[in-house]
Design a protein around this nucleic acid. Sequence first.
DNA 1: CTAACGTTTGTCCAATCGGTCAAAAATTTG
DNA 2: CAAATTTTTGACCGATTGGACAAACGTTAG
Lengths: 210, 210
Amino acid sequence: MEAVKPKRRTRIQTEKREIILEAALEAFSQHGFRGATIDQIADAAGMSKPNLLYYFRSKEDIHVTLMQRLLETWLAPLRELDDIGDPMTELRSYIRRKLEMARDFPRESRLFANEILQGAPRILPMIEGELKTLVDEKVEIIRGWMRAGKIVRTDPFHLIFSIWATTQHYADFDVQVRAVLGPDRGGEGRFEDAARFLEQLFIEGLKPKA
Amino acid sequence: MEAVKPKRRTRIQTEKREIILEAALEAFSQHGFRGATIDQIADAAGMSKPNLLYYFRSKEDIHVTLMQRLLETWLAPLRELDDIGDPMTELRSYIRRKLEMARDFPRESRLFANEILQGAPRILPMIEGELKTLVDEKVEIIRGWMRAGKIVRTDPFHLIFSIWATTQHYADFDVQVRAVLGPDRGGEGRFEDAARFLEQLFIEGLKPKA
DNA sequence: CTAACGTTTGTCCAATCGGTCAAAAATTTG
DNA sequence: CAAATTTTTGACCGATTGGACAAACGTTAG
């Protein structure tokens, strides 16, 4: 392992970097890496382009920093999944947490989706390392539940994929979801409806056969 | 309604336009609209940039043409869903067809995902029109099945969303899926595993309560 | 006050972008 | 064949891009 540099930062540096990352999140999640421009981000952050490049060496530097933070936030719900409680309750909580993240952090979800869609050119190592390790770990827990007859025997990897897919869909395909549901049902109650449906689907779909 | 122009085309025009659209599908699905360049597409199509622009007036023109075709292909599986057969069999077939599309046309899936992610700037009208109409129609069929007690009473819209999400996930997040499953399980058997899991999940999850 | 250091910006640059144009080359038509 | 038409390309353009740089500005410690 390589030693992490101290990176001494002044108060202003800490603050400004935060402002830039917020503006960049907005831009990258909306237009993708190539679609977003430094000028645009600098403008949204309320500073000149050279000023922004004083805090981050390059556009890529901003993106990498953003992705590193993102992955931690993104994996948090899965990390909480543990062996202690009742399996069905654990899974239900996990689905709920993931759905809440899609609701509360849609930009982060889209940023992530954008990166994966393009072949994960900048975070593939993290996917193959950190993420895979965590998934493998949780898959073992789920396998334990299956062996114990607590949930139906099925593929734990695809179970996790389907939870990711269904929940993130509400952030990534938000425009489509709204358009299809129409103005009346596309509003606030949307997430409660989704939560009810997904709980029903996964709970009934995973009940152990008697 | 506006009359459709005859658009007389020579043999060469028909062929070259097809070659360009194929190259553009590859480029747009991989890099998004802004990320793909005309030079890149022209190069992949084996012609000079001005030559490409002789067949399509602009980059946007190529994209629009591509999206119009895409939507038809994309909605075909849902169109086939009808009231004739057994509800559970119908739904199972629909899931299978959608999963096959994710396997056989991943670039189309990613092109679509890219467009929706960015807020559907170029196909929102089609989403609000054609797609919404079709969904509304099929939702009514599903509601009929629920009233008849053939499947459990739940939200038909979110049912459709979850089928879209889970199946398209294997095309859109392909890189992640492969990375997590590893080289051994990320190969060819991947789709059969996914199909088995999804059938199990949706069939059991939608069984009417006795 | 002043030297040192952190911050900010105007100006500039090479590369790339989407797209134009006129002229050459190839093909079709009579 | 020759004329008309379609196809192809090299050269070019203005706009935008990510980024460099030095000079100016602000702040603080001695």
